[in-house]
Amino acid sequence: MRWIITEPRGVTQALCEPKRSGRFKEPKPRCLTLVYKDNRLNQTNRLDVYAEAYFARLLEVLSQDYQVLERTMGILLGKHAFSVLIADYLSRFPSQSPNIAELGRRLPVYLRSHHPFGEQFPLLSDLALLEWASIEAFYADDVFLEEKIGDMNTLAAKKWASIRFKLLPSVHLLKLSWPVDRIWKKPSCSHELRGGLGKESTLLIVWRDREQVLVERVDPLQWKILYWIKKGHSLGMISKLLTSHLRRHRVTFDIAHFISHWRSTGIITH
């Protein structure tokens, strides 16, 4: 019976076209006879209440989690495109967590690797990645660590090199192929979408400042430094890596400048 209740197309259509997926093997009469029969509502209609509620509820949750994706898909693919995507997604990845907030976790990967919409418009999976990162930032643990290092300009070189910073749990580093932050920040830019948003390497940090989720573009140098901080490298190691990988000079000055900015915005802590 469960496949009928969980079929996003509804009970009637599932019974009419049971061969849509190989997993639908239960014959019609067996499951329906489990439902008490009376003259108020027939057995199929009673099951249908659950089937419709199942899809409507999960669609509503994912619509809230992926508001910008839904709007963008509406512009690019028509108003029912998001519902079609979600029906396919739920068939492939039914919820596996008691927490409904986890439901959309796999949608970005599903769009990128398994769905024709993602192939047709690759920016959609980047947009989904950004929206999911914002959800993770929303739920991330709070950390209140005391900053003990004070003014970094006055530190001796040896001590400076040994310092390790940490990214706050809410910080996500995204390396995307499309400038989807423009859509995220201005979801109504439909003319830009219709005209074709150009592919463009986009590096973003997503984090939460108190109760607000923020998105900021960073350049490749900043992104690298944050990435190495995330890996747990000391400032001395980051300095060496920058010098050898990027052949940059005056890296200490660059690092100090960025560290100061990120400490003030609260995305790194000691």
Binding site: N99, I135, E136, F138
Partner: peptide, 17 residues
């Protein structure tokens, strides 16, 4: 209850605060 148990990798955030 489930609105405040967080998601994988994060049990805090705005809701629990």
């Amino acid at each position: 209850t489930e609105n405040f148990t967080g998601i994988e990798g994060g049990a805090g955030g705005k809701p629990i605060r």
